[in-house]
Design a protein around this nucleic acid. Structure first.
Length: 478
RNA sequence: CGGGAUGUGGCGCAGUUUGGUAGCGCACUUGGUUUGGGACCAAGGGGCCGCAGGUUCAAAUCCUGUCAUCCCGACCA
């Protein structure tokens, strides 16, 4: 099996070096490449196609919940960024500044947006005057820049693509509802479309977004047991509205401040797909967002009728799924390995032997299970198998998360578990910042979230033994 | 910002110890034979060795500086 050996060598194995496996997969599956600027990735056609599918799916969910798309400017004047104190403190250290236009020094420098709360607020101040102008439910798809010191493809990059929703509401309750609704949209999207099980919860004050009153999050567990914050939804109250002087006349003819939310999900989610479903052969794409759902590999394609039959199947299947036919002159074996690397959920092999029997071979990427299918059943079998892969990926990811999630009740157990077992830990917390800090410093874990679905896993705070307020998910995070 | 590693055709590397006309594998191009798990044969093309100084008759190799990338930590999506 010399070829098998070669295959194994082509990417680092997950167990040997997970970080290296990750970058190998990103590069070799052609999702992305490096550019001349640190942290600025070239998202290659395969990665772009994946992002487009993610984007279309999410965009549909936003539209279905009444949101409209808008496009805001790339540059933010320094004075605007500085209007909200907590916000600027959070972001100032990592903004990129434009100081010159051509060779002229600008009177006021401009930052390249790290996020767009401030420009949205500036605009809202212009257009919101009456309760009849509310709510405003806006979203934009764009890229933003945060000058990160260390970067990793998709997980942390200097420039990244995302969507940011920014909404304004008449009442606090409406804004709270929106915050929660959009987190629900993210959670459904992650679980249904990406087959990534997530935990919905609230961030502690220490972990929340700069300038927010509350941050909700969906947290996913990666293959190595580390957590990845995969989408966030923030409640701002009227803090920004006050800072930006956004006021409207209410139903009772008094001047009021609107209540605000924002929510975002970025290309980081591609990192989540890779690290949730991938294996030693490379990517495994969830069928719902896979750029190619079925790859047809003709065998002995120079032989009479093979290409014609393959093309006929492609044509037929194109009505039911995203299908491609590879007629390049690489060997079939090369193609098998290549599309496994790229995570194509289903492979269809068709060769002279199949044509004789009026069948083809379908191979699942997740289980490698191989089935022979009569050609006249393709239109029903392929969607069924795609659905089975989608479900299989979710079930497997959920089972892994559960097997790597531990419940602990006392400090010694917490330290031992955090040190010895990769994964997440459920433990009670008193709500004190000192305990949160101690857990980080001494146990090496941070709070990932306070799940909406609370369980009572102990009586007292795992750290200080005081009265416990919340069950918290702790872990190491990306 | 700390710790570690690495920069040599597109990719992966050897060559650096001991200075002396840049090599290998893969990929690429052309022709032919092949095709059910990364095919084979033959003939080709491509690199001032990250960058800038210095030492020397002579630098990929020695010295100084610098830049970049990757990995591990601290901070952020």
């Amino acid at each position: 099996m010399p070829d098998k050996q070669k295959l194994v060598e082509s990417i680092t194995s997950m167990d040997a070096d997970f970080a290296q496996w990750y970058t190998d997969v990103v590069i070799k599956s052609e999702l992305a490449g490096y550019s001349g600027v640190r942290g600025c990735m070239i998202i290659r056609p395969y990665g772009t196609a994946l992002w487009e599918n993610i984007r279309n799916d999410l965009d549909g969910r936003f539209k279905a919940t009444g949101h409209e798309n808008i496009m805001m400017p790339l540059f933010i004047p320094e004075s605007l960024l500085q209007k909200e104190k907590d916000h600027v403190e959070g972001f100032a250290p990592e903004v990129a500044w434009v100081t010159h236009g051509g060779s002229e020094l600008l009177a006021e420098r401009l930052c390249v947006r790290p996020t767009s709360e401030t420009v949205f607020c500036d605009h809202y101040a212009q257009i919101i005057h009456s309760w009849r102008d509310l709510p405003k439910l806006y979203n934009q798809w764009c890229s933003v820049v945060r000058w990160e010191k260390t970067t990793r493809p998709f997980l942390r990059t200097t420039e990244f693509y995302w969507q940011e929703g920014h909404t304004m509401h008449e009442t606090a309750q409406e804004a709270w509802d929106e915050t929660e609704r959009m987190l629900g949209v993210y959670a459904d999207f992650a679980e249904q479309s990406l087959a990534i099980p997530v935990i919905k919860g609230r961030k502690t004050d220490r972990e929340k977004f700069a300038g927010a009153e509350a941050t909700y999050t969906i947290e996913a567990m990666m293959h190595d047991g580390k957590a990845l914050q995969s989408g966030t939804s923030h409640y701002f109250g009227d803090g920004f509205a006050r800072a930006f002087d956004i006021q409207f006349t209410g139903r009772d003819n008094t001047l009021q401040y609107p209540h605000q939310t924002s929510w975002g999900l970025s290309t980081r989610i591609i990192g989540a797909i890779i690290m949730t479903h991938g294996d030693d052969s490379g990517l495994v794409m969830p069928p719902r967002v896979a750029p190619v759902q079925v790859m047809i590999v003709p065998v002995a394609m120079h032989k009479e009728g093979v290409l014609e039959k393959a093309e006929e199947l492609r044509e037929r299947l194109s009505k039911a799924c995203r299908v491609k036919l590879d007629v390049s002159d690489y060997s079939p074996g090369w193609k098998f390995a290549e599309y496994e690397m790229k995570g194509v959920p289903l492979r269809l092999e068709i060769g002279p032997k199949d044509i004789e029997k009026n069948q083809c071979v379908l191979v699942r990427r997740d289980s490698r299970e191989k089935v022979f299918v009569p050609l006249d059943q393709l239109e029903t079998t392929v969607p069924e198998l795609l659905e089975a892969v989608q479900q299989g990926l979710f079930d497997k990811a959920l089972a892994r998360r559960e097997s790597m999630t531990y419940t602990v009740t006392d400090w010694a157990q917490m330290c031992r578990t955090a040190a010895e077992k990769p994964g997440l830990v459920k433990a009670m917390w008193c709500g004190g910042e000192a305990c949160e800090q101690k857990l980080k410093d001494e146990a090496g874990v941070t709070s990932r979230c306070m799940p909406f679905e609370q369980e009572k896993v102990g009586e007292a705070c795992v750290c200080c033994g005081g009265a416990a307020e919340k069950m918290v998910i702790w872990g190491k995070a990306y």
